[in-house]
Amino acid sequence: MLEITGLSAGYEGNDVIQDASFRVDSGEAVMIIGSNGAGKTTLFRSVVGLLAPSLGAVRYEGTDITGVPAQRIVRRGISFVPAERRLFPRMTVRENLALGAYPGRPDPKTMELVMDLFPRLAERQRQRAGTMSGGEQQMLAVGRALMADPSLIVLDEPTTGLAPKLAADAYEALGALRDRGLTVLVAEQQVPLAMALCDRGYVLDNGRISTQGTSAELANDPDVRRAYLGIT
C-alpha cells in the first residue's frame, strides 16, 4: 500500500533522515519506534508531503507521490495526525470535524462513526477546540483525520502530553479503527502501547532504520528491550 524507498530528508541541506526504507501493507498496523530526536517527525512529514524529500521515493498504491504537497496527499486517502495536532483552536469541535471532510460536506455516516468512537466529542460539539483538554484535542485530531475517510492514517506520537490512562484510551480507539479495516502507521516513544497494537515495526535510530521485524521479534530483540522497554 505504502512503500518508502531510500528516503533522505531534512532542513536546509542537513539530512535528518538518511536512506530510510519501509513498507506498510493494506490492513496492517505498523509502528516506527525511536527516541526523541531520532527523526520520526521528519520522516513522517516527508511521507505526507509537508516536507520535500531530498532523495528517495514514496509510493502509494502503486503511484509515485514523492513531493506531492500535503493538501493533495490527503485527498488520495492518507490522513496525517501530527504530534502538535494542528487543530483550529478558535473553531468549534463540529467545525473542525466538518473541515476534515474538505472540500465536500461532512458525510453523516462518518460523523456518526467518529462520535461513536469518541463520545466526548459528541458532548462537546459547540465547544472551541482551543479550550479543550489535551486528551480531547487528541481525539478531535484523530476524528478530523477520519472525516476525510482515509484508507491509511498516519499518526506522529499520538500520546504526546497525555496521562497514561488517556494514552491507553487513545490506543484502544486506534485498535477499534484497525479492526474496521483502516491501515495504521504510527510513530511512538511509548513502545509497549504501540507493540500491543501493531503487527510489525521499524526502529529509527539517528535518522536511519536500524532494525525491523514483527512486534514479537522486536520485543525479544536485546537492543530494543534495553533502549525502549526498560528491560535489561
Binding site: A70, Q71, F80, F88, L99, P103, M147
Partner: peptide
C-alpha cells in the same frame, strides 16, 4: 478561517 488559524492544519485537511 482555518488557514488564518493554522496553515499547516489546513493543508492536512486538504486545503
Amino acid at each position: 478561517r482555518s488557514v488564518i488559524e493554522d496553515e499547516e492544519g489546513a493543508r492536512l485537511v486538504g486545503i
